[in-house]
Amino acid sequence: MTAMIDELLHGLSNPVILFGHFTYFLLIASMLMRRMVTLRILAVASGLAKIVYRAVFVLDPVSVLWEAIFVLVNVVQLGLIWYYEHHHRFDEEHQHFADNMPDTVDRSAIKRLLDLADLERYAPGTVLTTEGMAVTKLVYIADGIVKIEHGDRVVAICGPGDYIGELSFLSGNPATANATVVKPCRALVFDQAKLTAAIANDAQLRRTLDSALNKNLAGKLSRSNNQMPTAERAA
């Protein structure tokens, strides 16, 4: 054990061995990135560094081949990201939806999710969900205000970036509260049956939606105490 530690410490003074460690450092750093583009760029840098290390210093052609394939895959993925960034531009409501997605979500998955949504406009007084009734739509608020009532009590105020009907979508249960539009709303509306069928056949789409809903639920919980005075005024 002591000999192994001594060998490791001795290697830290060798530039070639340090370069080998650096290639793995880049790979680990890429795995820590939240943004997919940054992850891919660091992965490519790691792969290229490993190719140099394996080809020049270690002379391992098998590793060079697989590192080259690794680099190629990540370059292709970067190209796809660039394509979707430049050829699938969003309108205002869709861009709002995309901007509120977690940083780790791939843009192509967002585009596929948005293809399932319809843009709707709701006037004040429109009821989006009724307590105890089945919910057939998942609503994303791009603009406007919706109050959430449980019984006769206003329990929350939802605004841009919030979902309405997400608990029913996740659980399959009827609505647990009434959701009523307070200020004119522009919303992206997903038919729950179509959305359920789509994510059943697309694991990436399911992860994208789960990430978005979990992020929104966490945000609602953190805001709930601060929103109570506002909710009472809206009532």
Rank of each mutant, 00 (worst) to 15 (best):
M1I: 07
T2V: 12
T2P: 01
D6M: 08
H10T: 15
L12E: 05
N14M: 00
I17T: 06
H21R: 14
Y24I: 13
L27Y: 10
L27I: 03
A29T: 09
S30D: 03
L32R: 14
R34D: 06
A45P: 02
I51C: 01
Y53T: 10
R54W: 11
A55M: 10
V58T: 04
L59I: 08
L59Q: 13
D60V: 00
S63V: 03
V64T: 02
W66E: 04
A68I: 01
L72S: 14
V73L: 15
V76M: 12
L78A: 03
I81C: 04
I81S: 03
R89C: 02
D91V: 11
E93R: 12
H94Q: 15
Q95R: 15
H96N: 11
H96G: 10
D99S: 13
M101H: 11
T104D: 10
V105S: 05
D106C: 00
R107E: 06
L113S: 03
Y122T: 01
T129C: 01
M133P: 00
V135F: 04
K137F: 01
L138I: 09
V139M: 04
G144M: 08
K147I: 08
E149D: 11
E149Y: 02
G151S: 07
G151I: 01
I157W: 03
C158T: 03
P160A: 15
G161P: 02
G165F: 00
F169S: 05
L170C: 06
N173K: 11
T176I: 04
V182C: 04
C185G: 06
R186H: 13
F190Y: 13
T196P: 02
T196C: 07
A203F: 05
L209V: 12
S211H: 14
S211A: 15
N214M: 15
K215R: 15
K220F: 04
L221I: 14
R223Y: 00
N226A: 14
A231D: 02
